[in-house]
């Protein structure tokens, strides 16, 4: 397993946002965490990325502990978070947004090559290379955010709510991109509210509610099952 989350608990002050979460991701997999608003999905992501400190539980990355590491360090270890709301640097140009991400790499030539191939794949980024990223459309910004995350050359990419606030056309574009990443051998942990989208790309899913994992399994096994819907909507807790 590249990532092991064991019995994680995260609190905001006294309020637990994540109560007891265990998740694992194997290299080369796409794992999705689904669940309604407030289930603790984003909090889990932020804890893995080193933005939040867990109050209990273990976080292991490639077998080594992550707890206590800052977000700067987890980025260097090879974890890249594409956060909710994209958070591109609006006053920086597209180029500068991408450069910021490549600074942690030692292999400058390879980084330059990666940048080239990214720009070839996304002509829009090439077109707007020198204009402020804040002027891109929402879908373009999401693509920039993912491209930026990829340029750190992560071993594991965390993608938080990639479809949030995007027009359906752009959501297609973004998921196409995520799928292609998987074909290129990238390991992904995606958080999403949109159940249908997830079932198209993921290998495995975890369903979260109220800070706990309600159900988990492979997409093949869960697709279309009543159990899945029940866990997601919380009709019947016994089903989990």
């Amino acid at each position: 397993m590249i990532l092991d989350v064991e019995r994680l608990e995260v609190r905001y002050g006294r309020l637990p946002a994540v109560r007891d979460i265990s998740i694992n991701v194997a290299a080369g997999e796409i794992v999705c965490v689904v669940g309604p608003n407030g289930a603790g999905k984003s909090t889990t992501m932020l804890a893995i990325a080193g933005e939040l400190t867990p109050s209990r539980g273990r976080l292991l990355f490639e077998g080594g502990p992550l707890a206590g590491r800052s977000s700067e360090d987890t980025a260097r270890l090879g974890i890249s978070l594409v956060p909710e709301g994209r958070r591109i640097f609006g006053t920086l140009t597209v180029e500068e947004n991408l450069r910021v991400a490549s600074y942690i790499r030692r292999d400058r030539d390879a980084a330059a090559k990666d940048l080239e191939s990214l720009l070839d794949r996304f002509p829009i980024l090439k077109e707007r290379f020198r204009s402020p990223a804040g002027r891109l459309s929402g879908g373009e910004q999401q693509i920039l955010a993912i491209a930026r995350g990829m340029l750190t050359r992560p071993k594991l990419m965390l993608v938080d709510e990639p479809s949030l606030g995007l027009a359906p056309k752009n959501v297609d574009l973004v998921y196409e991109l995520l799928r292609s990443l998987r074909e290129a051998g990238m390991t992904l942990l995606i958080v999403e509210q949109n159940l249908d989208r997830v079932m198209d790309v993921a290998d495995r899913v975890y369903v979260m509610r109220d800070g706990r994992v309600q159900l988990s399994g492979t997409v093949v096994a869960l697709k279309g099952s009543a159990e899945l819907e029940a866990a997601y909507f919380g009709f019947d807790r016994g089903a989990a």
């Binding site: 990325a49 933005e51 800052s70 977000s71 700067e72 980025a75 260097r76 890249s80 978070l81 956060p83 958070r87 640097f89 609006g90 006053t91 920086l92 500068e96 947004n97 910021v100 991400a101 600074y103 942690i104 930026r148 750190t152």
Partner: peptide, 15 residues
């Protein structure tokens, strides 16, 4: 400049 705009995000990228 990146940090001035969004310090947390910059750190997530290893700054």
């Amino acid at each position: 400049r990146a940090a001035a705009e969004d310090f947390r995000m910059a750190r997530l990228l290893g700054v």
